[in-house]
Design a protein around this nucleic acid. Sequence first.
DNA 1: TGAAATGTTGGGGCG
DNA 2: ACGCCCCAACATTTC
Length: 477
Amino acid sequence: MSSFITLFWFRQDFRISDNPGLFEAAQNGAILPVYILDETCPAQFKQGEASKWWMYHSLHKLNICLNSTLNFYVGDPQVILTNIIQENDVKAVYWNKVFEPWQLEKDAQIESNLKKRGIVCKSFNGSLLWEPESNFSKNGTPYRMFTPFYRNGCLQAPSPRKPLPIPEKIISLKDQGCRTTLEDLKLLPSISWYKSIEHFWEIGEQAAQRQLAKFLEFGLKGYKKNRNYPSKDATSRLSPYLHFGEISPHQVWQGIQVKCAADESIINEDKESFLSEIGWREFSYYLLYHFPNLPYKSFYKKFEDFPWKPNTEFLKAWQKGLTGYPFVDAGMRELWQTGYMHNRVRMVVASFLVKNLLQDWRTGASWFLDCLLDADIASNTINWQWVAGSGVDAAPYFRIFNPILQGEKFDPKGIYTRRFVPELDKLPDKYLFKPWQTPDYILKECNIILGVTYPYPIINLQHSRKESIEAYNKISL
DNA sequence: TGAAATGTTGGGGCG
DNA sequence: ACGCCCCAACATTTC
């Protein structure tokens, strides 16, 4: 029995609780825990800088849970796995799938090669509540709208499985031939820009569980309404943990059910509202599975002819949070400073880039992928296409957010906006979201010189909105 | 999970 | 008392 070694290949499942692949591997006997930084990953799917920083710490925490036996490698998983197997008398390889098409494709190759060598291969689903391959609308095609997908496809299907416990015993082995350490993955950047984001986050499986507990305790009640206000810290902030699999959606789903069963003061609306966000995550992976081109191509073909107006100056101003629209700038600076952006504000800044500045949604998606700690190909792609109006079940193109009104509505006291745009700190609420309308004497009192301490708006909202709708009408003909 | 333009209604000031 | 205008408040339509 002890001679039966199972290689457990960690992918994006940096946890030991509710880890189906690990759970079963541990029951076989000794495991050889492996992480491989995949050098063959296509360039456009390589992790961004912020993500890599998170992953460094996540792997570090995971390694501690495994008594520092996690084995690190860099290269082509195919080659590396083959080498490890030869040198360590491995009989089986288990992993949890990453539901991204190119990964699944590569996994299939690896699996067939290993099987030829007589190695047992098993892959598991540790990251989705419902299998994407077996969920179709009545006519047999993939769902194209969220609501039927979620209501008829997910909620009518058998409930998600209950989370698995931590394996009772994990006998983990070190590959003596492994010469690589976590440091050798070079995940940390040479410039330590992450100092500013460091104190916003705690990383790892235990931190994820604490974050869930905190959300269940303080965030769930009133979620539906409060989630729209970026100053409130009323969202779950579980996205980076979910992305790296430090927590599983099953644990989150179950956590909600248990909490709501025990606490009658939580109304159904809040519960459903949060669960449907988990549903959106499922929908994103589902769509990516069935339409693997989504990260490159607009779902609606006509959008490939959209007359974008590429403009480096606009793009840079947006990235730096210097558009002259304080609510947009607050969001973009939150992203840069914390590796995160509140959901409401993500919609506003995305709408502004695509619909006011007429920049291709892919330029925005790519910036988000580089800056977000929760950068997730599936969610990011689907949400950008949603905002752009080019995607499945998308917002109509003419649904254009007005950053002034959005600010006034969802940050009425300007707490969020002032936090990230401190140069406008003294500006009265009345002018906070449109500083260029402030009377000169008030600007003076607030030590604001427009065009110097804070930019004038880089574009006129009314004109750009009109131009945008005209451009949209062109491709709709 | 939109915003602007346009339409409708009704109270109050005023001649 | 009455009709007229104004306009806020709300509803509907349009992009």
